[in-house]
């Protein structure tokens, strides 16, 4: 063998023996305090969604109109965060709105992601008529206004009793938002797939006899998904605020369930009317959630990309 039989690593690793990528990722994740803070915020809201009774005893549905627009009274008061225009307790509404809001965001973003990534990957990989079909469909959905489509779905489900279960209350907004939310993912993934599929390592896998499924799953997708992960946290915020618009039309989260979106929408009317707290309370929660997701998404991307982990 030649004289190069003893290779030296170009990047010396402090940790010596390397372990599995998951353990590496966890170690990287742990070293960042912002990541821990973000995770804490999300855990906090997750607990709130699961056990709203831990945070408030007041029912969001008892709304004595006499007490409308009470200012925040602080902890220990009857209405710690005050009441809204109808006299409903802001804290109770907010706490009980976590579950539908977050659930809606997760369901919509998750399903859109699966649909968009699958279609984008297939279109970018196979091109030809698959790409033609997917690209034209994306364009069609992009030109239909969201509200018009929402009205259509509303008329379709008119008179259908959907029940009041956890998923039932978000079904209508979820359908509408998924229908009109998958296109960006498809476009991003298609573009990234076009770029990745001509690289030599894909050719290498093909010359080894790898199936299309394997090439897409192991080689193209992991290298094409990066652009999309940056999109996810902001999409969550977009979904929550879009739901507020839909609720205005009557196809948002179904009453009596409430959501942050509805609360923000109603609160924005009284910002200048002397009751900014009605808007601020849910808005701060939304911003905190989105920021936490951004930080976590960043950390996750760094941790999973072997090139960025140091």
């Amino acid at each position: 063998m030649s004289d190069a039989a003893t290779p030296t690593p170009t990047v010396p690793r402090g940790s010596g023996a390397s372990s599995s990528p998951v353990a590496d990722a966890w170690r990287t994740l742990r070293r960042r305090p912002d990541t821990i803070a973000a995770a804490a915020v999300l855990v906090f809201f997750a607990v709130m969604a699961a056990f709203p009774r831990l945070f408030t005893d007041t029912s969001p549905r008892s709304c004595p109109i006499r007490e409308a627009r009470t200012a925040p009274q602080g902890w220990g008061g009857e209405h710690p965060l005050g009441t809204d225009a109808l006299g409903c307790d802001v804290l109770a509404t907010m706490v009980h709105g976590v579950r539908p809001s977050l659930l809606l965001a997760i369901v919509v973003v998750g399903v859109s992601l699966v649909i968009g990534v699958t279609l984008g990957l297939l279109a970018g990989y196979y091109l030809g008529w698959v790409d033609y079909l997917v690209s034209r469909t994306v364009e069609v959905f992009l030109v239909i206004p969201l509200l018009l489509a929402a009205l259509l779905v509303l008329s379709l489900f008119k008179g259908v009793d959907l029940g009041a279960g956890t998923f039932d209350v978000i079904l209508l907004p979820a359908v509408v938002l998924i229908l009109f939310g998958w296109m960006p993912y498809a476009r991003y993934v298609r573009a990234a797939t076009l770029e990745a599929k001509n690289l030599d390592y894909v050719t290498a896998a093909r010359s080894l006899g790898a199936s299309d499924l394997r090439i897409m799953g192991r080689h193209v997708l992991p290298n094409a998904i990066g652009t999309v992960t940056a999109l996810l946290p902001t999409s969550v915020a977009g979904v929550i605020s879009a739901e507020a618009v839909l609720s205005f039309l009557g196809i948002g989260v179904r009453p009596p369930a409430t959501s942050w979106g509805i609360q923000i929408e109603q609160g924005s009317q009284w910002v200048l009317g002397g009751s900014p707290h009605v808007l601020l309370a849910p808005l701060i929660c939304l911003v905190a959630t989105v920021l936490a997701l951004v930080v976590l998404g960043d950390a996750l991307r760094d941790a999973l990309d072997p090139r960025l982990s140091s």
Binding site: D200, T203, A204, S207, P222, N223, D305
Partner: peptide
């Protein structure tokens, strides 16, 4: 096959 560019012929992930 052995490829030309060792920087693109190995999957970075």
């Amino acid at each position: 096959m052995v490829f030309q560019d060792p920087y693109t012929s190995l999957n970075p992930r």
